[in-house]
Amino acid sequence: MVTDLPPPAAPLPAAIRIADLCFAYHAKPALQQITLDLPAHQITALIGPSGCGKSTLLRCINRINDRIPGARITAGSIHIHGIDINRPDIDLQELRRRVGMVFQKSNPFPKSIYENVVFSLRLSGIHKRSELDATAETALHAAALWDEVKDRLHTRALGLSGGQQQRLCIARAIASQPDILLMDEPCAALDPIATLKIEELLHQLKKQYTIVIVTHSMAQATRCADHTAFMDLGRLIEFRPTLQLFNTPHHPQTLAYVTGSFG
């Protein structure tokens, strides 16, 4: 799906529009004037050196940054399908249900595999057994985990391997049928084989979901992402289709980073 179209006017419909976004922890700015349109049903990778603000940007999209005291958006906006998600009357729970998130370190709850997957359904007050079963199966299938765990759905989730746990977290996130999946370095703590499985999974998931992934690995970005955004020091340096960004970077900083002579 990687395109060679010229970057400025991507004709694809944008699922997430980020405009002039500035963000600060207390008085310390973390993001400065980010403008970025993330296309629907595509995988967008955010790359950049440590501390460049890519995770912060990702965490703005489902407003999970609200948890951190003193963190706030100082200017700009994020629109998801035309809705400004920082309006005061946004239903935060609904937003997070529609924008799923997978964290760097897999974090299943200390409950059974089954209960982990149906967690978001129970939150919305669904307790009908048949419905829960159906969702659990679909989500685990979608996360390519069903065959491995179908016989032990009611055992502890913490007993799974690292890669399985991470896929369980993906299943848990997609069980609430989101439109967008945010992934914060989902493979950072995994071995290469588990990483490969997750990457395969991403290609499957892209058909249904808009995916934003933060990654440290440029190889992973080239393997998975349709578009890649390079960030540094809280600013967006360059955002283009992945191959173009890596092969013909426009910006010298990008060039330095992708060729490995950075910092």
Binding site: I64, K105, N107
Partner: peptide
């Protein structure tokens, strides 16, 4: 672990849902 609360919030749980369904059981 703080990760439990974060995961629960990211799944769309409200404050008391996070407390009573994730943290207290854990």
């Amino acid at each position: 672990p703080a990760a439990y609360a974060e995961a629960s919030d990211a799944l769309g749980a409200s404050r008391i849902q996070t407390s009573f369904r994730v943290i207290i059981p854990a």
